[in-house]
């Protein structure tokens, strides 16, 4: 399925001879979300390439040695901007939801499922 994507066009995409490589699950999840949004018709792949390219050329390189982590932080920032520009979400909504997840973790005892409702119990 994803073989049809022109991943060769991505500057600096961490990859081996079989495709993209990831060093942590969130990187692959960010990748998969982008592909899924594209396949659902929310944007053209060329639009995405513009966003990720712009992020790489203008973004501040994070202070890390892990190339995959650096690349996918830029990827995630580009995806957040594209999602906001397309009206699918907004920076305040994303920020609010991120805080809700963080609080949900902080209010969840070890061994219990992390659910968003726990954020309300603080």
């Amino acid at each position: 399925m994803t073989e049809t994507l022109p991943i060769d066009q991505f500057p600096e995409l961490p990859r081996d001879d079989q495709g993209p490589v990831f060093s942590e699950p969130w990187q692959a999840e960010a990748f998969a979300m982008t592909v899924t949004l594209h396949k659902a018709g929310h944007f053209e792949w060329s639009e995405w390439v513009d966003y990720i390219s712009a992020e790489i050329s203008t973004g501040t390189p994070p202070d890390e040695n892990d190339h995959n982590a650096i690349y996918y932080r830029q990827w995630l920032s580009a995806l957040e901007r594209l999602v906001a520009d397309k009206g699918l979400s907004s920076p305040p909504e994303l920020m609010h939801r991120k805080d809700a997840w963080r609080r949900a973790y902080e209010h969840t005892p070890h061994g219990e499922p992390v659910e968003l409702v726990r954020a309300e119990q603080g």
Binding site: A69, R97, W101, Y105
Partner: peptide, 17 residues
Amino acid sequence: HTAPPSDPALRVKALES
């Protein structure tokens, strides 16, 4: 309590959910 994941992991969770 459960230590939250890293910042990018939380952002991915936020976006995905």
